[in-house]
Amino acid sequence: MSAVLKLDGLAKSFPVGKRLLGAPRGLVHAVQPVDLVVAQGETLGIVGESGCGKSTLARMLVGLLPPSEGTIEINGAPLDNADPAEFGKKIQYVFQDPISSLNPRKTIRQVMEAPLKRLHGLDRAQREKRISEIFASVNLREEFLDRYPHEFSGGQAQRIGIARALAAEAKILILDEPVSALDVSVQAQVLNLLADLKAKLGLTYLFISHDLAVVEAVSDRVAVLYFGSVVEVGRAEDIFRAPRHPYTQLLARSAPVVGRALSAPEGKETELPDPLNPPAGCAFKARCPRATEECGQRVPKLEGDAAHRVACFHPLEG
């Protein structure tokens, strides 16, 4: 399988304490340099808790945020200008909140026409035809086209969001928590639709979520993010069953599972480290039962074979 998306040292830091002129007072490293390769037709899941940098990473990938460092390559060609219109044809984004990602004062037809007109320059008849095709593929009725966003349920709105992303004809979709705003019964419909579209159109997905079970159910591989860094990457069926990074293990144990007794896997106060004042060494060491002196001195690198990589000095036996 060939790599369609390659991230090389992609990082983002935000200045804090901005001044009108001159340098800011400090930098927050929202995403530490990330190297990831996504193969053609693959679904790469990205999990992490709030504040771990998932959404910042996603926004960089579609050009909504210019990266501070590093490069993004699509099919071997670097994308270095942060112009969403350039990105738009190659990589598209499906938003978390389906309703607020639709302009309340535009009809669905206007929403659908924008990418066809601006990215592909189709004329009216061609647009009409494309919209029918896309709507058929996401199981939406064409009578919806002349309605406004507030008339739709969350599941329908999310399907419209997916339809809009498909209209750009990008082969890579970034799905940023695409089902977390939906009810469970609707969530399954959307997840199945995404799987069908992927098979039919040969798409590649980056599936970002905080829900481990959902990520496991849809992904080929999963990357676990903690405090802006990838701490573990591995096959979806292995990573939560046999985690190697202590943080992945903590996540897997915390997820409520039917038939498992209730116990807090962690006694102490658990908070992400302060981004303004990041700890030296491994960011997880304060919460880690296996931490040693070494963990406080150096930052562990993501190491291992192609199938499973982990950034830990004392990994668990997988």
Binding site: S153, V184, S185, A188, A213, E216, A236, A252
Partner: peptide
């Protein structure tokens, strides 16, 4: 039964979910 079936559970691996068609 169908609500339980359509929620993925951790440890179940990659799979197709049993969606409930339609809306409440």
């Amino acid at each position: 039964a169908r609500l339980i079936a359509c929620v993925p559970e951790l440890g179940g691996g990659r799979r197709r979910l049993e969606a409930i068609p339609g809306l409440p």
